Deep mutational scan, measured.
Amino acid sequence: MEVVDPQQLGMFTEGELMSVGMDTFIHRIDSTEVIYQPRRKRAKLIGKYLMGDLLGEGSYGKVKEVLDSETLCRRAVKILKKKKLRRIPNGEANVKKEIQLLRRLRHKNVIQLVDVLYNEEKQKMYMVMEYCVCGMQEMLDSVPEKRFPVCQAHGYFCQLIDGLEYLHSQGIVHKDIKPGNLLLTTGGTLKISDLGVAEALHPFAADDTCRTSQGSPAFQPPEIANGLDTFSGFKVDIWSAGVTLYNITTGLYPFEGDNIYKLFENIGKGSYAIPGDCGPPLSDLLKGMLEYEPAKRFSIRQIRQHSWFRKKHPPAEAPVPIPPSPDTKDRWRSMTVVPYLEDLHGADEDEDLFDIEDDIIYTQDFTVPGQVPEEEASHNGQRRGLPKAVCMNGTEAAQLSTKSRAEGRAPNPARKACSASSKIRRLSACKQQ
C-alpha cells in the first residue's frame, strides 16, 4: 500500500481520502468484538498479612480480608486513616479506646483483636480482627420478611446475652447493641463488635452510672431520649438488646419516626405494640426488656430465667442462610486472597510482582521504634555504632529488605517449588510478632 504524507491529507475531501486508502487503516468495530484482558491483581503485604478484597466500608474506614502468612488464618483488617478520623467527632479517641478494650477481652461471643499495625509515614492504622463471614443486618436484609425464624432468632439472642453478660462482668457498657454490630462466623457463632462508643466503668465505681451516649437513635432507651444527665449503663444495653430481639423476630421496630426528633419523642413516651403472632412468652420477655422505668427493666439474670429464653424451640421454618457475597455473588464466600496468593505462588519472584506497604510497620504502639547501633568497621576489626531503624520486634528492616532482594536475584530452581506461605513470609520485609 502506498504511504501517504499526513501533511497532504488536509487537502483532500472525505471521498478523496477514502480513495487514497484511509479506509485501510481506520476501522470501526462493535464493542462486543473487544476482548478485555482482566487487570492483574497485584499482591500487597502489610507486615506478614497478605491483603485481599474489600469486605465493607463504614464511617471510620474500610475493612478488607487478609491472610496471615505465618498461621494461614483468615483475618479481617480495619484500615483507618488518621486524616479521616480527625474529621469525625471523637474519632481518634474512640478508636484508641476500642483498641484498649479489645486487647483485654477474651470471649467467644466478643470479636477478638489479633494485631494492631501502624504506618507512621502514611498515617494509617490497621486493626487486624478475627474473620466473620457476614453481619446479622446483612442476613436480615437478604430476606423479604426482614426477620429470622424463632428457632434461629433464639439461638442468636442467647449468644448475644452470653457476650453481653461477659462485657458487663468486665465493667464495660457497649451502648450500641444492634444487628449491624453483631457479626457471624461460618459456624454460626455470634460476635459482638464495634466497641468504639463503649465505656469502661471505673474499677471502684459504686454502680453503672453513665453520662454520655453515642449509640444508634432507634435503639436508645427513654432515659436517653428524654435527655437525662445520668442513667444506668447496663440497663441501656438491656433495652438495646430488647429492641434487637423485637427486630429479628418481627422484622419491625418498636419505635419509629420520620426524623430523629419524632423518633425520640415516640421513644420518650414509651408506647409501642407487640405483634400478636409473637406469642405470650416472647411478648412477656419483650415487655420486661423494654420496660420504661430502668429500675423495673429486666436484668440479665431475669432474662436467663425467663421461660422463652430457657425453652427449646424446634425449627418450624427453614433458617435464613448466609447470603452470597454482594460484589462477586459467591454463595460460598470464598477467600478473596486466592488470586493474590496464586500471583505470588505461580509467578517468578520479581520485585515488580508484589507490593510491600512499607519497609517498617510499627505494631502494638503509636510511637516510632527505637534505634540500635549499626556496626561500623574500624582499624582493629571492631565496629562502632551508628543508628539503624528496627521493627518493634527488633528485626532490622533494611537488612531483611536487602537480603530479600538478593535472594530474589539468585538463580535457584529449587526455590520455585516452595509453598505459597513460605514465599509470602520471604517477601515480607518486616516480620511481626
Rank of each mutant, 00 (worst) to 15 (best):
P387F: 07
F255C: 05
I238T: 10
E121I: 11
I161D: 00
G56M: 06
V143P: 00
Y49P: 01
P315C: 08
Q137M: 13
E145T: 13
K178A: 04
W239I: 00
A377L: 06
C134Q: 03
S213F: 10
M335A: 13
R409K: 11
T244C: 10
K312T: 12
V34R: 04
A429V: 12
K96P: 02
G346L: 11
V243D: 00
S193V: 04
A414L: 08
E70Y: 07
A429S: 09
V337L: 05
Q220Y: 10
D284H: 07
I238S: 03
I111P: 09
F204R: 05
S325T: 08
E351Y: 09
V338D: 11
P275M: 02
G268T: 13
S271V: 05
N109Q: 05
T402M: 09
L105I: 14
K44I: 08
T230K: 09
T244L: 06
Y272H: 06
P89S: 04
L353V: 11
I361V: 14
S299D: 08
N181Y: 00
N181I: 00
E199Q: 05
K124D: 05
E357F: 05
S401A: 13
E317S: 03
S283V: 08
V143T: 14
I356Q: 14
H379F: 07
R333D: 15
R74K: 07
K191N: 01
P321F: 05
D30W: 10
P144W: 15
R415M: 11
G171L: 11
I111V: 05
S334Y: 13
V20D: 14
V243W: 03
K175Q: 08
V320I: 14
Q123A: 07
R75A: 15
R409Y: 13
K62C: 11
I361D: 13
V320L: 03
I111S: 02
K84G: 12
T185F: 06
Y131E: 01
D355A: 05
D348V: 04
P294L: 01
I360S: 07
L67P: 01
L190F: 02
D330T: 14
A200R: 04
N226L: 06
D30T: 15
D343L: 05
Y118I: 10
V143Y: 13
E120F: 13
L17S: 10
S31R: 13
P324I: 14
S216D: 01
L245T: 00
Y126V: 04
L182E: 00
G58S: 05
E357D: 03
P321S: 11
I35F: 05
K41G: 09
V372T: 13
S213A: 11
L45D: 10
T336S: 06
V133Y: 14
E351M: 06
R425H: 14
L183P: 01
A316G: 09
G91Q: 07
L285S: 00
G385I: 12
T71S: 03
P38S: 06
T24H: 15
L286S: 00
G257V: 09
E14L: 06
F255Y: 09
R75D: 15
C210D: 11
G180C: 07
N259V: 02
L55Q: 14
G215W: 01
E165K: 05
K96E: 02
P294W: 10
F25I: 15
G187I: 15
G251F: 01
A406D: 11
N119F: 08
V128F: 07
I79W: 00
P314L: 08
V337F: 02
N266W: 03
V110W: 02
G288I: 00
L353A: 14
R425T: 13
H168G: 02
I111R: 08
A43V: 03
D229M: 09
